[in-house]
Every structure is written in C-alpha cells, then in structure tokens.
Computed example of a mutant assay.
Amino acid sequence: MTNEKSDRQTVLTAPQLRLIGSVDEAMYAEFRNQLSAAPTEGPLVIALTTLGGNPEIARAMADDVRLLRDAGRTIYFLGKASVYSAGATFMAGFPVKCRFLTKDTTLMVHERQIAKTINLSGPLRSCTAQLKAALNEIEQSIAIEEAGFRAFVEGSDVEFEELQRRAPDNWYIGCEKALDLGLITEII
C-alpha cells in the first residue's frame, strides 16, 4: 500500500463528522455543529448512514461541502451501511475521487417524489394559475433532479441516461458494483 493510500485509509477510519438517520433539519443542525467543532486544517471525513430524507437539505449540506472545497479543503465522503435517496444526493456533492463506501454498503437512487392534492375552486383564471403553479413546481423539481443525477455520475462510467432510466425503479447499487461503475474510488 502506498504511503498516500495508507495515510488516506488512516484518515477515513476516524471520521470527524458522523451523521446517522434521516436527512432532515435535525441532521443539518448536527452537521453544522460537528463541522464547527472539527479541525480547521487537514482532510475532513464525513461519514453518513441514512435511509433518506429531504433532498433539499442534502443539497444544502453538499453546498456547504462545496464551499469548503472551493476554499481549498480536502473533504471525503464515507458511506456506511445505507446511503439511500437524499444520502445519494449528498454524496453527489463530492467528486468521485473523494467518495468511499465501507464494505457491504448499499447506495439507492430514485426519482424525486411529490404527493400533492390540488383542489380547484373559484374563478376559472385562478384555477389556471393554481395548475400552472403546480406544473412550475414539478418542472423545477425535475431540473434540480437532473442536475443532481449529472453530479452523481460525473467522473464515473455511468451515463446520465442510464441513471435516468433506472431511477424510477429505485436503483440499488452495492458497494462492489459502485466501485465497478466508478461511482466511488474505494471500498474500505
């Protein structure tokens, strides 16, 4: 094992941030608290285990990571056990060279979902506006999803179109397959 790989392995086995549970406001608060308590120099490792949650919070966390990377910080993602749904959205915020999974970890990627009831009532023009607003929300969510899918596969052997095709059926990807597809750099 090279010194760089050995040093990285040592860093990865002692994450400074450990996040477990639903990606929600509580996880974001915990993420920010752990981040503020973490060392300000050297590589930073964020370990995550999640069955999913709010994709917008995952995007906000990933943006915090991007800002730190843009400032010159090396930050690694370490997925443990399950990295589902919003967890994969967060992972997409890291370049492939900074993505790692522990043995037997599974990724799961799916389409964004919506549950909405639209009750039309009132003047017809207001009904049209309500429908247009719902359509705008869906179209914007699709655009955000596509940007996230592109980030997830960037630098890997997976084509964007393949992810689009597989996501509606909840694409489960074991760590070995993720490595084969170039979605991660190593299994530890």
Rank of each mutant, 00 (worst) to 15 (best):
K5R: 15
S6K: 15
S6W: 13
D7F: 07
Q9M: 14
Q9W: 07
L12G: 00
T13H: 13
T13K: 14
T13R: 15
P15A: 00
Q16M: 12
R18M: 13
R18T: 14
L19F: 06
L19E: 09
I20G: 03
G21T: 02
D24P: 00
E25R: 03
A26P: 07
M27G: 08
M27E: 13
M27Q: 12
E30N: 15
E30L: 14
E30G: 13
F31R: 10
F31S: 07
F31V: 08
R32M: 14
R32E: 15
N33H: 15
Q34S: 13
A37L: 15
P39Q: 12
P39D: 14
P39R: 13
E41T: 12
L44W: 11
L44I: 04
L44N: 06
L44Y: 08
V45H: 07
V45I: 02
I46V: 11
L48G: 08
L51Q: 10
G52M: 00
G53L: 08
G53V: 04
N54G: 00
N54P: 00
P55Y: 05
E56Y: 13
E56H: 12
A60G: 06
M61F: 04
A62I: 01
A62E: 00
D63L: 06
D64S: 02
D64R: 09
D64I: 05
L67W: 03
L68D: 06
R69S: 05
R69T: 04
R69W: 09
A71N: 03
G72I: 06
R73I: 02
R73A: 04
T74Y: 11
I75S: 05
I75R: 03
F77I: 08
F77N: 11
L78I: 01
G79P: 02
K80M: 04
A81Q: 11
S82W: 03
S82R: 00
V83E: 10
V83N: 04
S85E: 08
S85L: 04
G87K: 04
A88S: 15
T89N: 12
T89H: 12
F90E: 01
M91W: 09
A92G: 13
A92S: 09
A92Q: 08
A92M: 03
P95I: 09
P95R: 10
P95S: 11
V96M: 02
V96E: 10
C98V: 05
C98S: 14
C98L: 09
F100H: 15
F100Y: 13
L101A: 03
L101V: 06
T102C: 01
T102L: 10
T102D: 07
K103I: 05
K103N: 02
K103C: 00
D104R: 00
T105M: 03
T105E: 04
T105Q: 06
T106M: 12
L107M: 08
L107D: 05
L107Y: 05
L107G: 01
M108A: 12
M108V: 10
M108R: 05
V109P: 14
V109E: 12
E111V: 12
R112H: 11
Q113S: 15
A115V: 11
A115P: 04
K116T: 07
T117W: 01
T117L: 05
I118K: 01
I118G: 00
N119V: 15
N119F: 10
N119K: 13
N119M: 11
S121E: 13
G122E: 06
G122F: 01
G122N: 03
P123I: 07
P123E: 11
R125V: 08
R125S: 02
C127A: 09
T128L: 04
A129Q: 07
K132W: 04
A133L: 10
